[in-house]
Amino acid sequence: MSIKNLDITFKTNAGNIHAIRGVNFDLPRGKTVALVGESGSGKSVTMKAVTGLLDSNCIINSGNIFYNGVDLLTLSKKDLRQKINGQQIAMVFQDPMTSLDPTMTIGAQIMEGMLLHQKISKSDAEKKALELLNLVGIIDAEKRMKNYPHQLSGGMRQRVVIAIALSCEAKVLICDEPTTALDVTIQAKILNLIKDIQAQMGLSVIYITHDLGVVAKVADFVNVMYAGKIIETGTVDEIFYDPRHPYTWGLLSAMPDLETDDARLYSIPGSPPNLLHEPTGDAFAARNQFAMKIDEKAAPPMFQITETHFAATWLLHPDAPKIELPPELKARLERSRKAAFLGDKA
């Protein structure tokens, strides 16, 4: 799957909100890509465009979303629903409490998609639903089929949601903050589960999250989003051990790792820009301690660092002054590199 130059505007009573301002990224087959950013940075909107779930006040100004060579944006809603959603691309939503139907049994919800999309008899569907429940690690699957969502715990419900997503043999799984509503121990289990299933079935996975710990655990490639744009992209190692964009620096420093002992936590000053008023120049300039004059005039293009690593900041321009990383961040990057290499040897 490949997203090219996506540009989306929302029409609201207050005016037009330019939510996505040119997003490009690829999802290689069998790999995991993470979209990281604050709320309002456009990560969920991008994914809604992929699944055709955008609200009616949304206008797609330009862009293509290619999936196996087909541009999803040119398909009708009906085609999208009948051929793509569920069968090719499936979604796991954030909150398992609200994404399941409280009036249907678990079994009926898993079978619903299969019976609609595939020519399959009810007893076969039932058999397959049982298999899926076993696959996602639900004990006593036969009994659970007849349960309603409220009879399950949060972690169990998220497992059921994953089973539903897998029911029509989708090739791409989009996980929108799949574990934010869950406890750490259960979160770790669900992430491991998704990873195992991915390896078994050769899925490609897109994670939408703001938790960098989760990203470190699951992702192969990372896209950092800010104000409707991808501002840094690279492999997970490049983003975590050699970040180049000041916003990525801020995100990394704002999250204490277990070794942080600093008296104060670094926080990115200010709050994200209001996209009602389109920012001129670099959208991050107002919150950037390294901002230069050019940041106010023109938005930086993507500068290439390695074959896979790109960042949109004027600091990478050959004429830009060399800047010194903040000491805490420097110490932290060194610490994490060190830990990583020790971990490799072990």
């Binding site: 289990k189 470190a216 975590f240 830990a339 290499f341 971990g343």
Partner: peptide, 16 residues
């Protein structure tokens, strides 16, 4: 052991 750490190589080798 379940706290995710923002360090990919360490994180991928951890056991829960």
């Amino acid at each position: 052991s379940a706290v995710p750490q923002p360090n990919p190589r360490v994180e991928k080798n951890r056991t829960l």
